[in-house]
Amino acid sequence: MGVLYTEQLQIGYDERVIVQNLNLSVPEGKITALIGANGSGKSTILKTMARMLKASQGTVYLDGRSIQKQSTKEVAKQLAILPQNPTAPEGLTVSELVAYGRFPYQRGFGTLTREDKDIIRWSIDVTGMGEFADRPVDQLSGGQRQRAWIALALAQQTDILFLDEPTTFLDMAHQLEVLKLLEKLNTEQKRTILMVVHDLNHASRYAHHIVAIKKGTVISEGSPGEVMTPEVLREVFGIEADIVSDPRTGAPLCLPFELAVAR
């Protein structure tokens, strides 16, 4: 088992069950991508594993203990999450935003220590946001905003980072900018990253481990080569696709060409 895993997890809203009997382990020190059609339960799984949602049954284990039995500050020191489309208060600067990442470590009136300030500065620098430190977040481009939020997550100094579709609504250049940053964080700092990914070729290129979800159930998981197959894509997405090898990386590329015929 990895440092983060679920046992017989069931998640639902009101009387509707979204996820049932989920047993999922996140490989430590790797990038894992959750893929699946819209409404398949990917974001619901991510939020529940991060304790943003409560499971109706089963358990999420973080460092060998139930995540529900740990305090908010305990969890925030181990796991940081970047939700989809986060928004900052108008006029809040990048430095002020990133400073929120030090909340789990603050006591009393929450005064920032020298160590806090050093970590905030490091988080801003490592995400390439140094020149924008004093600029309001709402005045940044999409890619810059996303990097500012990642800097906030990094300031928590956690070994695990969750991201819910971090490249949504970004143009191609900004998508690559964010994905390259995540790759760097994993390679150089061994961060364990779990992200919901919409683009299958991004998942294949940047993730070591892929989990394909359909109606809250794991259909396939493993390396990109094991999951990115015509059979899995047909079942999970209802498409017919050719799989070719990326000439640069050797990773499988998905080339969809028509809808699968229902059988």
Rank of each mutant, 00 (worst) to 15 (best):
K54D: 09
G130S: 15
L112Q: 12
A55R: 01
T59V: 14
A88F: 03
K184Y: 07
F257G: 04
G108K: 13
E221Q: 15
R234K: 15
K69H: 12
A260Q: 06
T48H: 05
W122Q: 13
E226W: 06
F109E: 05
H174F: 09
R205D: 02
P230L: 10
K190T: 08
N21T: 10
T59E: 14
M1G: 13
D134I: 00
T59H: 06
R263Y: 03
R234N: 12
G36M: 07
S95N: 10
Q68P: 00
H209C: 03
Q20L: 08
G64W: 09
N186Y: 10
A155S: 11
A251L: 02
P224M: 08
G143M: 08
A37S: 14
F257N: 04
H208G: 02
I18E: 01
V261K: 15
P27D: 10
A76K: 03
Y105M: 10
R147P: 07
L253G: 02
E28L: 06
F103K: 11
R191W: 01
I213E: 05
F162L: 08
L176R: 13
V211L: 09
I160D: 00
P86W: 11
G2Y: 00
Y105Q: 08
V236R: 02
V197D: 06
K30A: 13
Q68R: 13
T44E: 02
K54Y: 11
N186F: 11
R145W: 02
L170N: 03
L152N: 02
L82Q: 01
E231D: 14
R205I: 04
T217K: 14
T44L: 07
D199P: 03
Q157I: 01
E188I: 02
G39Q: 09
P247T: 09
F162A: 00
P247G: 08
A50V: 03
L154D: 00
W122P: 04
G64Y: 08
E131F: 06
A207Q: 10
G250Q: 11
I160S: 00
F132H: 14
E258P: 00
T187R: 15
V244N: 03
A50F: 03
L255D: 04
S223D: 06
K180H: 14
P230K: 11
L170F: 12
L92C: 06
K42E: 04
D246M: 08
R135T: 12
D118S: 12
